[in-house]
């Protein structure tokens, strides 16, 4: 935590937070709605960033875990009237558990093999939802009538309210994940991303940490799914496809691996097509070109993580750690 680094960062964060807080006042209802979906995209992008951006695990099926969270919320809320916000941790846990179970036998696979298996998982989940497994998912029509969330007696219903809920969640996520990045766990993931054989060889339990990253990312995606279900009140398999996973994958890669990058990536991937609306039917064409161009121009992503800095002046601190280990 060198002070210069922090000093530059804190005002920027305050400015961004202030901007986010007043932004809806300047937006028309259409753009407020767009910003809510970008916020949900940012939550998902942050959650995938743990897996793909930080640990380097090629997961192109992240929508599967999003789906589990959304459906768990929808089923429990519509059948048992459990409030949506109480279901956030339940949805997260269900997703995380599914991810751990699914990833356990495949976590040792090499990059591209893992990628296609995760694609398989998201397709299997989608088909399972369409086929109304266990009579719970409502088939191709999905589930409707999911309740709106309620905080301190205020029912969150309007887009502007969701804006603050979702972007508040984004802020909290960035804070928690940034801490994680700077910890033993975050470093272990960086090492695994660079060279998992070397990581294992210097004492890092590679398989366990890969699973941890997978589980955490899926947990967060599950919670985002719960918010999504509450926002839409109707969910169907069409929202959780391979295509959605691809967009998230692109968002994280465009971002470059940092928390800020993941949020920026969500803006580009979920916001750009809205800005390109003027191109009408050619907007996805332009989007495809933009995706290629951005990677060619900046292959490392737009905001790769800044190197971690540590306080190494321990002699000045009176050698208080002298007893450690050695």
């Amino acid at each position: 935590m060198t002070s210069t680094f922090r000093r530059a960062k804190i005002p920027a964060l305050i400015a961004l937070t202030a901007l986010a807080a007043v932004l809806p006042l300047a937006l028309n209802p259409y753009w407020t709605a767009v910003f809510v979906s970008i916020g949900l995209g940012a939550l998902l992008s942050l959650s995938l960033n743990v897996i793909l951006g930080r640990a380097g695990i090629f997961n192109m099926g992240h929508a599967a875990f999003y789906a589990v969270g959304a459906y768990v919320t929808a089923v429990l809320n519509t059948r048992y009237q459990i409030p949506v916000l109480w279901l956030l941790p339940v949805a997260g846990a269900a997703s995380g558990l599914c991810a751990l179970l699914a990833a356990r036998p495949i976590i040792h696979l090499r990059g591209d093999y893992l990628l296609i298996v995760t694609v398989g998982i998201v397709e299997i989940v989608r088909i399972a939802l369409v086929n109304d497994v266990g009579g719970l998912t409502g088939g191709a029509n999905g589930i409707f009538g999911i309740a709106r969330p309620e905080i301190f007696g205020i029912r969150i219903r309007r887009d502007i309210q969701f804006y603050y809920l979702v972007w508040g969640a984004v802020g909290l996520t960035v804070a928690l994940f940034s801490r994680l990045d700077r910890s033993r766990v975050g470093r272990a993931l960086s090492c695994i991303k660079e060279d998992d054989t070397a990581a294992e060889g210097c004492g890092i339990a590679v398989a366990r940490y890969k699973l941890l990253a997978f589980g955490l990312g899926a947990f967060w995606a599950g919670m985002a799914g719960a918010l999504f279900a509450a926002k839409m009140t109707i969910i169907s398999p069409g929202s959780f496809t391979f295509w959605d996973s691809v967009l998230l994958f692109a968002a994280v890669t465009l971002g470059g691996g940092s928390q800020a990058g993941a949020v920026l990536g969500a803006f580009l991937v979920f916001g750009l097509p809205e800005i390109f609306r003027d191109f009408a039917s050619a907007r996805m064409l332009v989007f495809g070109l933009a995706l290629m161009a951005m990677m060619v121009v900046r292959p490392q992503g737009l905001l790769p993580p800044a190197p971690r800095r540590y306080d190494t002046r321990f002699r000045a601190r009176g050698e208080r750690a002298a007893g450690d280990g050695a």
Binding site: R179, G186, C191, E194, D195, A198, G201, R308
Partner: peptide, 30 residues
């Protein structure tokens, strides 16, 4: 086999990993 894009200090810290205890929650909440 070093972690070439990480700093020299972080490479040494990677070796220290196995003697540390902090788990996921402790790390996230600091």
């Amino acid at each position: 086999r070093l972690f070439t894009s990480l700093s020299v200090l972080e490479n040494a810290l990677a070796g220290r990993h196995c003697r540390m205890r902090a788990g996921l929650l402790a790390s996230m909440f600091g």
